[in-house]
């Protein structure tokens, strides 16, 4: 059964069967990644453009690797932040890329809605690699894959997304995906970092991190942005770490064997203590490996649709 949509713009509205299919396909590719020759000819002859309007080395490398493992021809197109603000140049770039007859475009952009806009002006399959503070569907998928791999299920689990939910593209994708798969989702963070009306998505809001640890099976801990603008939302890094940071003492105190995810890169000593970041509860490096497998699955399923 093929995917029901020829683009992956977000996890909002993606049916359970599609997510299931992507996760199952990712399992197959996960095995490929364990082989001595980690390459399959599946997307030979297909051209994928990685269009990155925002530097994100990790996500780009993960996609690039996934494309190479599937034998696709991939082109990196990085655009410096300084030229982003001009709308004109954006449209010109897209038209240029369109003229090159590419099959798929993986797009990362600081502005929400850009992947949707691309679907209107390009015939290629569009994969959203993060648009503003909207969605980052492959991250949501790899988080779900990692949870399922470790805990053997998603349905019925209680998952809490911790941190700057309001300025995260990971949070929404997790919320949509996890809820579709039958998990109970909550968010926890300083109230300035919880976006308006999030409860209306069927998400519980928790302001106390100990409560979040006690109540949940999984914590997906977001990275806190440390630059000045993000800092308007909380008084100090020290205060954030003290009241929302996950430490070994905190896990111990709540007597809880809990699974911890983090999309990386980690601010050690802020959202996670070093002990937790390297500890037994986390699967952070597994997430990185799974990221490649999940992206292979998405590229493969979309690339072989027609």
């Amino acid at each position: 059964m093929p995917l029901s949509n020829r683009h992956l713009l977000g996890l909002q509205g993606v049916p359970k069967e599609d997510i299931q299919l992507i996760l199952d396909t990712a399992s197959t590719f996960r095995e490929v990644l364990e082989r001595p020759i980690k390459r399959v000819p599946t997307l030979q002859g297909k051209t994928v453009v990685n269009l990155f309007y925002e530097s994100s080395t990790r996500t780009r490398i993960s996609f690039e690797l996934a494309e190479k493992r599937l034998s696709a021809d991939s082109i990196n197109f990085a655009v410096s932040a300084s030229s982003v603000s001009k709308g004109e140049s954006f449209k010109d770039t897209i038209k240029n890329i369109e003229a090159m007859k590419v099959d798929m475009v993986v797009v990362r952009h600081s502005a929400a809605g850009t992947p949707l806009y691309l679907t209107k002006i390009s015939d290629a399959n569009i994969i959203n690699a993060g648009d503003g503070i909207h969605e980052h569907p492959t991250q949501g998928l790899l988080d779900m894959y990692s949870i399922r791999e470790k805990l053997r299920k998603i349905e019925g689990l209680k998952v809490c997304i911790v941190g700057d939910v309001a300025h995260s593209r990971v949070a929404l994708s997790n919320i949509y995906g996890l809820k579709t798969m039958g998990a109970e989702v909550s968010v926890c963070g300083p109230s300035t970092m919880i976006p308006k009306n999030i409860e209306d998505l069927g998400v519980k809001v928790i302001y106390n991190i100990d409560e979040a640890i006690q109540e949940n099976d999984v914590l997906n801990v977001l990275r806190i942005q440390l630059e000045r603008k993000a800092r308007e939302y909380f008084p100090s890094i020290r205060e954030y770490a003290k009241y929302f940071g996950i430490t070994e003492e905190r896990l111990e105190k709540n007597g809880k064997d809990i699974l911890i995810l983090h999309p990386g890169p980690i601010n050690r000593g802020v959202e996670l203590s070093s002990g937790v970041a390297d500890g037994l509860n986390q699967i952070i490096l597994k997430q990185v490996t799974n990221g490649v497998a999940v992206r292979m699955a998405v590229l493969y399923l979309l690339g072989t649709l027609n």
């Binding site: 909002q12 929400a112 809605g113 648009d131 503003g132 503070i133 909207h134 969605e135 309001a166 593209r169 929404l172 976006p195 308006k196 009306n197 999030i198 209306d200 998505l201």
Partner: peptide
């Protein structure tokens, strides 16, 4: 406008 829609669309409110 700030509300559920801005949260869902990821647009600054």
């Amino acid at each position: 406008n700030e509300g559920l829609n801005s949260t869902m669309l990821g647009l600054p409110p």
